[in-house]
Design a protein around this nucleic acid. Structure first.
Lengths: 211, 211
DNA sequence: GTCTATACTACGATAGAC
DNA sequence: GTCTATCGTAGTATAGAC
């Protein structure tokens, strides 16, 4: 179906070049169809862009669903379980972020972070927001600190440790002396982040009970 | 001078809209000059883009210079001093990243991270690379672990905690329930990151000397 | 449903007037 | 040095043929 081919290529092109950088002519050509097929199926470039956002949100939803569904079942007083769930979500997030074929999707989202449009609402309003809120709740439990603002700020610094590899990819690759991100590197990163997370929560626990 | 006005506006426009999104016509109009002035002063759109990158690199250099010059003087065995220097660099980095008027520059760099061009070489090859290398050295000292690869990976997770507020700005603002990043928030973030950094290095130290 | 034609706008580059 | 005028290219949208 021309519809699906166009959507596929649109995600790639919009992620790679952005809304303005991508051209409907080249998207249509790559899909082996006429440019006006975009008008027909999606109403225009803008509609195609939003359809791409919806598709990305849906795919992200599938990928993260089980990991964060489980986290909702966790008891509000079980700090160890909450921390384990944080490790699980962050690990899965890292995997999905760096997975082959996820580059276009990630870049699409990074672009929207800079210049949020309606497309960002569709992505954040879906599973992304739910995942982050679930993470905040787990952080509150795992830290034993009910203060919401502090939990949210800590959550930001946690996800930053994973996201940096996508959002600042070029710098990271140079700093690590690599040409690309392979699965061994992702595993190393996950281990490093997990150790950091443990260290941070241990430190918070220690400061709560001085002796 | 038309040259400087064009450069100023170019940084803003390229940062906001990207190389393809920005138009030489509107940049020239905003600078109150004819479009062909860009050709005259910079040789064309591409030249203007590279000049913008050079200007950003130079400005970043000034801003971070003292903070990281001092770090080079630190003794290779003084773990406490190295950790203090890490705090100083990261704090200054956070300030500069979130400072009023730095948005365009930050966005310019984030875009280059996704799709590095010659402009990225000019920025990274300047002070950015030096700052990151200085950080790696400090991390190696502060952690008491001479392994270079481990130090680089840890460095990545450290800067990620700061950069996330720019690179994933929209998500962070939503998660924090804010409309904008004010200086109070930056101070909170700096304190949180500093605590995280301490916790991580304490944990590493503890694992090295089990008793 | 899909493609061809075409209309219209905006882009970047350049030549030449001042 | 700076601006005006213009060229060629590429963008989106639309109407209508198949």
């Amino acid at each position: 179906m021309a519809h699906d081919r166009l959507l596929d290529i649109a995600i790639r092109e919009f992620g790679l070049r952005g809304l303005e950088g991508a051209s409907t002519r080249s998207i249509a050509a790559a899909a082996g169809t006429a440019m006006s097929a975009i008008t027909y199926h999606f109403g225009g470039k803008e509609g195609l862009y939003l359809a791409a956002a919806d598709h990305i949100a849906a795919q992200m939803g599938e990928d993260m669903e089980t990991a964060f569904d489980q986290s909702l079942l966790i008891d509000g007083r079980d700090r160890a379980a909450a921390r384990a769930a944080i490790h699980a979500i962050m690990g899965r997030f890292a995997d999905k972020l760096m997975e082959d074929g996820s580059e276009s999707r990630s870049l699409f989202i990074v672009r929207e972070q800079m210049h949020p449009t309606e497309a960002f609402d569709r992505i954040y309003g879906g599973v992304m927001g739910q995942m982050l809120e679930a993470l905040v709740r787990l952080v509150r439990i795992a830290s034993g600190d009910d203060d919401d603002a502090r939990a949210r700020l800590l959550t930001v610094t946690l996800i930053g440790q994973v996201i940096v590899l996508r959002a600042s990819r070029a710098s990271c690759l140079r700093l690590l002396g690599r040409k690309a991100v392979d699965s061994a590197l992702v595993d190393d990163l996950k281990a490093r982040v997990a150790a950091n997370v443990d260290a941070i929560f241990e430190s918070i626990s220690a400061s709560q009970e001085p002796r």
